[in-house]
Every structure is written in structure tokens, then in C-alpha cells.
Design a protein around this nucleic acid. Structure first.
Lengths: 228, 228
DNA sequence: GGGGAGAGATGCCGC
DNA sequence: GCGGCATTTCTCCCC
């Protein structure tokens, strides 16, 4: 059963942190897996929430509806005090589908494995992330001169954290292989100015690579067709 | 107006990435700020969503309800095909309150500013993040020997990324001040084994510091009282 | 609007 | 369960 309540309420939370939220109108959702969400009338994220597997008790007292949620495992709790109910729904929603997502970093890595020349002529992948013993390196390969090369992929604009991540992997490979020099390449659609500066300072390189999209092109073609 | 629809639907998305979601029961929410959320019966996050400020069109065709959302600014769109409606609500929810959160990293920094000996005897804060010209350094100070010290705070278990962040700030201060040595201290309630290894390898230090909580103690005291 | 970093991040996969 | 990391991360703040 999925329960959805449109209401006026106050919220108090304690657990990993602590919070209070004064009276206002929100939507409270309790999902089948005992997730609790409190959504304000704006924003993408829940303002307060409890993880899946929490326990929830509701009771009425002097015309006020209380919802008390607890999660013993994570030592967290939420108290909701509901002073007005605008709507309330409950339905046994069933959904056994999971989302299929493309255009992720993983897809970028697969695209480069299928077409290594995206990185540069002569680049040969040696190992994909899971297969290496050096840790979570996206792509390990050799360049046309046989030099070991670490490739770190980012699906978004690469920032300084991405550069330090690449640096860490390059240093890890250098020390574990006993090599004096290992190339580092950061592949992303964009890079910030600071990140590029850091990258060049450490002797690494940037490759502009955009994660693959499939039905965006289809839609563009289709919308062109539709115009005629 | 906040619109909440419990329904059976399929979803297609294209924008920063692309996704498809086969038929199943979900809750669709359109908020006052034109945020669109699609929630499955499990999990904390929306499976699909559109940012605030998107535009939404709904129309009925042969007993099927279509919702088409677009965001021109971010070049994203979502198509929802609704084959069954379990419930539908609309209400003019009003909420002018924001959440008050404590126990954050910011609170940790303030706690250390008020009691610098938490880091170590003789530690003197020089500048809090906003005040320094070195960038986003949580806390800059001097130790009892007058040596410049960078403190990076994490409210959670510190991971390798936190260590590289500290390293980056220490190097930034060293180069901008022309110093050969700057101390680096990572303050967090916990640290992973790998992160601690990296930290020690680079000559930095760990301090076990827990972000402050206020009414958790009150509640503990209160629950003790309630037992009597 | 871009850049940078936190978040009660969540979720996923590996060990 | 912890660890390490991606995310259509989102959100905030500052430039």
C-alpha cells in the first residue's frame, strides 16, 4: 500500500543530524517498502525522509494526527504533527519494472572500448574497471608507444575532484608497477578552467568525449519528419 | 497548486541522459514550482523527474492520459503515458517555512572555532572558510609552534576523496605562501582504512571529531525522565 | 550563470 | 555489513 497525504504539518527529525520544520503545507508519502517522504510544494528532493524499512505509527489525539516513524538500525526518528488534512489516498501500487538508463559513465567506457581511437590513434585498452587489481580505474590501456595509460571518464563537466581522482589512480599504478611514468587522460565533455590548469600542471591530458545517446538522435530525426 | 496522481504508466526521458521505464504503478507529482516527480512504490528518490520551471501539458486521447513535460533551458523532456488512474488530487498547498538543520559540517567547524583545543592544545584558528583567500578551506590555523595548519572537516566517515581534498588545499596554501611544510589535519568521526593509509603516507593527521547534536541529548534526558 | 563543495545525500555493486 | 564511487545527483553560496 502506498499512502499519500496532503496536509498542514510540522516535522521534527533526529538521527545522523537533527532538524525542525515549522508549520506548512506538505505531501507525506509512505511507500510499500516503509520509506517515508515529506515533500514541500517546491523542489525535487524530500525535505525530510526515513529510509526503507522504517516503522511508522499513526494516531489521532484531540483532532490532531500524529505520525511517528522510527528506524532502530540507524537510530533515527521523525515526528510529524498534522493539523489539517487536505487529501488522503491509499492504493496497492505494484511496479516490478526498473528504469533503463543510458548515457552514463559506464556507457562512455563501453563506447571507448568499442572505439579506442576516440582516445587517440594506437590506444589499446588493457582492462576495464572491474578487471584491474589497481582499484576502480575506469580504463587502463597502452598508447602507440606501449606506455601505460590511465583513462578516467566523467559524463559531466570535469572538476578539480575528477583531476585528483585521476592523479590518485596514476600514482597507484606507478607505485604498484614500479614505473617512473604513467600517462593520465581525463575524458569528459567539458572541463573547468581550474581543473584544466591542475591537469596540465601534473602532466596529464584532456580528451573531449561526450557520453553516447541513442534515441535523442532518433527523436531529432522523427521531429524533422513530423514537420513535413 | 500541487497535483498528485496515483497511476499505471510508462515513462520516457531524454536530456542529460536517456531512460525508459516500462509499465507499472507510480505516483506522479507536479509541484507549484513546476517540478515534476515520478515515484515508484519503493525507494527514496524519484525514478524520473524534471527540474523546477519545466512546462507540462496533459491531454486525453482514446482513454489514455498523456503528460508531456519540457525544459527548454536544459533541453530535457519527459513523456508519461498513463493507462489507469487510481487517484488524483490537487490542492493549493502553501509553505513558507524552511528546514532548520543542525549537525552539519558547518556546525562542526563552528564547534572547533569555539573550542580549538578539540584539534589539539595550542591550535589557534586563523580563518574560517569564507574569510580565507586560499579558497574553500574549512579551517586554517596555527599550531602551538606557529606552524600553518589546514583542517578539513567531514561530518561522516572520511573516505579517500576527503584525503585528496585535504592534500589539494595543503598544496594550495604551500604554493601561495611559498612554504615548504604545512600541516594537514582531517577531522571526522571515522575514517576508512584506505583513507587513513593515504593520509599517513602524505604526512597528514587524523582527529576523531563528531559533529554536534543538540536535542538528541534533550530527548535522551527526556526519555530517561519518562521512564520514571 | 559557472564554479566549487556539502548532503541526514541515495543507490549500486563488490567483497 | 563496509567500502568505494556514480548520480538526469540536488542544493546552496559565492564570484
Amino acid at each position: 500500500e502506498m499512502i499519500v497525504i496532503g496536509c498542514r504539518c510540522t516535522v521534527r527529525y533526529s538521527g545522523r543530524a537533527e532538524s525542525t520544520l515549522a508549520e506548512g503545507d506538505r505531501v507525506v508519502i509512505i511507500k510499500r517498502d516503509k520509506t517515508l517522504l515529506i515533500h514541500q510544494p517546491t523542489g525535487s528532493l524530500a525535505v525530510n525522509y526515513m529510509k526503507p524499512g522504517s516503522s511508522h505509527k499513526a494516531f489521532l489525539e484531540k483532532g490532531v494526527l500524529f505520525i511517528k516513524s522510527k528506524n532502530l538500525a540507524s537510530k533515527e526518528w521523525i515526528d510529524i504533527v498534522i493539523t489539517k488534512v487536505y487529501f488522503l489516498n491509499s492504493a496497492p501500487l505494484e511496479d516490478c519494472q526498473s528504469i533503463l538508463l543510458s548515457g552514463t559513465e559506464e556507457d562512455m567506457v563501453d563506447m571507448i572500448l568499442a572505439n579506442p581511437e576516440i582516445i587517440e590513434a594506437g590506444f589499446k585498452p588493457v582492462a576495464k574497471e572491474e578487471q584491474t587489481k589497481y582499484g576502480f580505474i575506469d580504463l587502463l590501456g597502452t598508447d602507440k608507444n606501449g606506455q601505460l595509460t590511465v583513462v578516467e571518464c566523467k559524463r559531466y563537466c570535469a572538476d578539480p575532484a575528477a583531476v585528483t581522482q585521476l592523479r590518485r589512480y596514476v600514482e597507484k599504478v606507478m607505485s604498484s608497477k614500479g614505473l617512473k611514468r604513467v600517462r593520465g587522460i581525463l575524458a569528459a565533455p567539458k572541463i573547468t578552467a581550474n581543473a584544466l590548469q591542475m591537469l596540465l600542471d601534473w602532466g596529464f591530458e584532456f580528451r573531449k568525449v561526450t557520453p553516447p545517446k541513442y534515441f535523442e538522435e532518433f527523436d531529432t530525426a522523427q521531429s524533422r519528419l513530423e514537420r513535413f
